Simulated scan of single mutants.
Amino acid sequence: MDYEDQLERAIEATPDSESVGERFTVPDVEVRQEGKMTVFENFRETTDVLNRRPEHVMKFFQDELGTSGHIDERGRARLKGEFRADRIAEALDGYVDSFVRCNECSSPDTRLVTEQGATVLKCDACGALSPTPDL
């Protein structure tokens, strides 16, 4: 078998990128209004997928949305004010970009660590250390 035949065989054996699901998907936000509060129903599930402390994510949301809030006994984020689902999703994307995905390889296999008094994003896939915004 020559090179061209081997290459063609390898291409045929490789699955299409559209058919292979990404292993890291952030859940769609589920929000509802409750009076003058916005309740992020699947907040706990989302923080579990992101592998981040709910308190850290909540602090980011408060800063990003310019509001106050808390995590209730059922693990839902309760934010003061009325926010549409797309605004919450936009803030969540900002969190993922700043505190979850590696800046070098885009892997979600990261963790927040403290290096010389500063919190940085350490990638378990490529080993990169990236600065994170202050919260």
Rank of each mutant, 00 (worst) to 15 (best):
G66Q: 07
V49G: 04
D48P: 07
V57S: 04
N42V: 00
V20Y: 11
R84Q: 14
K59T: 08
G75C: 11
T47V: 10
R53S: 14
K36R: 14
L50Q: 01
A77D: 08
L50M: 08
R78P: 02
N51S: 13
F83W: 03
R84M: 14
L65R: 01
P27D: 09
K36C: 10
E34T: 06
V49A: 05
D28W: 03
H70F: 10
K59I: 05
D28I: 03
A85M: 09
F24A: 06
V31L: 03
L79F: 03
T25C: 15
D72A: 12
E41R: 02
E34R: 09
R53T: 11
G21I: 12
R53K: 15
D63N: 09
R87I: 03
H70S: 14
R44H: 00
V20C: 05
V29H: 01
T25S: 15
R23A: 12
D48L: 02
A85W: 00
M37F: 13
G35K: 10
D28T: 04
F40Q: 00
V31M: 01
P54C: 11
L50A: 01
G21L: 13
E45M: 10
T67G: 07
H70L: 12
G69K: 01
N42D: 00
M58G: 03
T25V: 15
G75P: 05
Q33Y: 04
P54E: 09
R76Q: 06
P27S: 10
E34M: 12
N51R: 14
E45N: 11
G69C: 05
E55A: 09
Q33T: 05
E18W: 13
T25Y: 15
E45G: 06
F83L: 09
G21D: 13
P27L: 11
E22C: 14
R53C: 09
P54S: 08
T46D: 03
M58V: 01
R74K: 14
V29L: 06
N51D: 12
A85S: 14
P54Y: 07
E18M: 13
Q62R: 13
V57C: 07
R76S: 02
R78L: 14
G21T: 14
E82L: 11
F61D: 00
P27Y: 14
T47C: 06
K36S: 13
T25F: 15
V39G: 01
T25A: 15
S68F: 04
R44K: 13
R84A: 12
E22L: 14
T47I: 06
R52C: 05
T67V: 04
M37I: 08
I71W: 02
N51V: 14
M37A: 12
K36L: 10
V26D: 07
K36I: 08
N51M: 10
R52Q: 11
E30Y: 03
E34Q: 12
V31C: 04
V57G: 02
H56Y: 14
D48A: 08
S19D: 15
F61M: 02
L65S: 04
L50N: 01
T25W: 15
L79D: 00
N42C: 02
G75H: 04
H70N: 12
V26H: 11
E34A: 06
G75N: 08
E41S: 05
D48M: 03
F43Y: 06
R52D: 03
T25H: 15
D72E: 10
M58D: 04
R84V: 08
E64N: 11
R78I: 13
E64L: 04
K59D: 11
R44I: 00
E55D: 10
E64I: 01
V49L: 08
D48E: 13
K36M: 12
F60I: 08
R32L: 08
H56F: 15
